[in-house]
Amino acid sequence: MSAKDLRSKLRLLLLAPLALALTGCAKVSGLGFEEGLSSVNDISLSLWSWSWIAAGVVGVFTLILILWPAVFHRASASKGEFPKQTQYNVPVEIAYTIIPFIIVAVLFYFTAVKETKIVEKTTTYAHEITVEGIQWSWQFGYPEAGPKAVLTGTPANPPTMVVPLGEKVRYTITSNDVVHGFWIPAFMIQMQNLPGVTNSLEFTANKLGTYPGRCNILCGRNHAQMLFTVKVVTPSEYKAYLETLKASNA
């Protein structure tokens, strides 16, 4: 194989990953998350997907910049060549300062826009559930069923949080000891449970099923056992569940 053929194949090898990344832009997948599971997914999934695509394109381009001089501009030891030494290149230095700044600024802008929309408080929520983190489990309260309608889990017996399908719920998030993290991965939801601080989050679950949740902030010895399950039921089943809680705490 001639040197010219070798260089052609190497160019193709270097450019193939970039072409693959760009063709993936034609249809953005969930990249690990299912579409439509919650109202938060609907808001943040596009940001998540395009952030990964941007990272992939930048990574491939950086790899090409690293490999290109190593492959096509290496010195020939047999000829005793020594590559030309360049101390600086002002246009290149300006470019690799401005381009990353633009990328970060764009990501920051869209992140701020999406986050503002996700944490927005409204008066249109249909239900309220309280979420209190405790070492090392969860307490889920249902104010509609009365002040005593509170489910307390343990590391050995994680609780189940029942939520209605297609109806907005406000989650009031607190902690009675240390910092915890209320995290439902499938719903792309995470908010901290802070001692002495009341946070709130509103979202709608859009698909029936059960989904795992956990604490994602190290909170002590049994942090890994701080689990819970989210069960999405129909509105009629949710209403019946509230009635059951009322009856059991009467």
Rank of each mutant, 00 (worst) to 15 (best):
I118P: 04
G80V: 03
P100M: 04
P185C: 09
F72P: 00
Q139T: 10
A224P: 04
P185F: 03
S44H: 07
V162L: 03
A70W: 13
H73F: 13
T160N: 00
K117N: 07
Y238E: 07
V60F: 00
S236M: 09
T111V: 08
G220Q: 01
A186I: 01
M161F: 07
I184D: 01
S2Q: 05
P83Y: 01
T122I: 06
K79S: 04
D177E: 06
N199E: 10
G36R: 10
N41T: 06
M1Q: 04
N176A: 08
G80W: 03
V92F: 14
C215D: 15
W68H: 15
W183K: 15
K4Y: 10
A55N: 01
W136G: 04
G80K: 02
G196E: 10
Q135R: 12
I103L: 14
W48P: 02
I118R: 08
L208V: 08
T204I: 09
R214W: 08
I64V: 13
F110I: 05
T130K: 04
A205Y: 04
T152M: 03
S78H: 06
L218P: 11
V58R: 00
V150A: 01
F61A: 15
M191H: 05
K121Q: 15
T152W: 02
A77E: 13
Y211V: 06
T152R: 00
N193C: 15
L37E: 06
Y142K: 07
P164A: 07
I184H: 00
T172K: 13
